[in-house]
Computed example of a mutant assay.
Amino acid sequence: MKKFLVIDSSVLPDVFEKVLTAKELLRTNSVKGISEAVKKVDISRSTFYKYKDYVFGLSEGMVGNKAILSFLLKDERGTLSSILKHLSNNNVNILTINQDLPINKIANVSITIEISKMETDIDTLIENLKVLNGVVKSELLALE
């Protein structure tokens, strides 16, 4: 049985990040083949083959189609609405919304979404949500 972990890449050897970069170069047809990709990121072919099936970006390894997002939001008109609009614009289906009462003008909100038809990857979605007006914090809690 496989066991998956989510680990901040800053604590891992840089070879894992290089494997991901090589895989992305291949996926986007930015290089002609594996030899060119590994040369570009400065790893050996054997290193690439050793890790390519075991190293994934967060959204690349996604097997399910649901995610739980957590937010800290300023208690301002339109903040939650802008998040919902952004999710809708990315073809995300909202399954549940749970919101606590604001304390010190900050509310904790969790949103469960269905992402099978999402038009971007989960990392980009979260980064785009972080910059919306009134969003203090945005993070992925779980992926199913």
Rank of each mutant, 00 (worst) to 15 (best):
T28G: 00
R45I: 15
S46W: 08
K66W: 04
S10V: 10
K130L: 09
L140I: 15
K50D: 07
I103D: 01
F4D: 02
T124P: 05
V38Y: 06
L80G: 04
A107V: 06
D123K: 06
L73S: 02
S46Y: 11
N133P: 14
V19R: 11
F16T: 08
P13I: 06
K105V: 00
G61W: 13
N108C: 03
E144F: 14
K18Y: 07
M62Q: 12
N65I: 11
A107W: 06
Y51L: 10
K50H: 13
K117C: 01
V55L: 02
E60R: 07
V15H: 02
I111L: 00
T120V: 15
R45F: 02
V131K: 14
I103L: 08
M1W: 09
N108W: 09
N104Y: 12
D100G: 06
E127W: 06
E17C: 03
S116P: 01
E24W: 15
K18V: 03
I103W: 00
L125R: 06
N90D: 06
S116I: 10
D123A: 03
I97L: 14
T120S: 08
M1R: 09
P13G: 02
M118R: 10
D14F: 01
E76Q: 08
I94F: 11
I126F: 01
K3H: 08
D42C: 00
L129G: 06
Y51M: 11
T28S: 08
E76A: 03
S70D: 10
I83E: 04
L80W: 03
L25Y: 15
V19N: 11
K117T: 15
L5I: 12
S116C: 01
S110C: 03
D100A: 11
N89P: 02
V11A: 00
I34M: 04
L129F: 12
Y51A: 09
R77T: 14
N93L: 08
R45Y: 08
K50F: 12
G134Y: 11
I97Y: 08
R27Y: 06
D42Q: 02
I83R: 04
D75G: 00
A37Q: 10
G64E: 14
T124H: 09
E24S: 15
L5P: 00
I97N: 06
E119L: 15
V41H: 09
E139D: 10
L25C: 12
L84G: 04
L143D: 04
